[in-house]
Computed example of a mutant assay.
Amino acid sequence: MPKDAAVEEFAALVRALKARDGRSYEALGRRLSVSASTLHRYCSGATVPEEFAVVDRLALLCGVDEEGRRALEAAWTEADRARRRAASPAPTPVPAVSAAPESKPDPSVPDPTAE
């Protein structure tokens, strides 16, 4: 399944921050209190952080100005929306209720209303 364009854009921004800083995933992760693999998933677009705080800390660590942080937050917001859409289950169709076929009386059973 292809990734959402908003997620791709957000991941590209996070990758650019990581490249700008020059540290390894492990070193950056330690500074941000996340695992190296979590940071890698953000950079690859495999996942989007549930909260902007970790990305904001990364931006501050990398010396991003206020305008850049606002742009990063806007990109995160769009990616988060895409993540939520993908995570919400599709509505399950309700099976149509069909009327029970009319039953024909069993000819071997006497009809009590016939008398």
Rank of each mutant, 00 (worst) to 15 (best):
A75C: 00
A16I: 06
R70F: 01
E26S: 07
R69M: 04
F52L: 14
C62S: 13
R84L: 15
A5Q: 14
A6H: 10
G68Q: 03
T47Y: 01
R83S: 09
A99D: 09
L61R: 02
R85P: 01
A53Q: 02
V48A: 04
P91W: 12
R81D: 02
T47L: 00
A16R: 15
S44F: 03
G68P: 05
A90E: 15
A96R: 08
A75W: 03
S37H: 14
D56P: 05
S108D: 02
E8S: 08
A74N: 13
S44D: 10
R83M: 11
R70H: 05
D80H: 15
R31I: 07
G29F: 00
A99L: 13
D80Q: 05
A36I: 09
R83L: 06
P95T: 15
F52T: 00
P89F: 07
A82Y: 13
Y25I: 00
A6K: 14
P101N: 01
A90S: 13
T92L: 06
A87S: 09
E26T: 14
P101Y: 14
D4A: 14
A100S: 13
C43K: 01
D65F: 04
A90H: 08
L13Q: 08
E102S: 12
L28C: 08
A36H: 05
V64A: 10
H40M: 05
P112R: 03
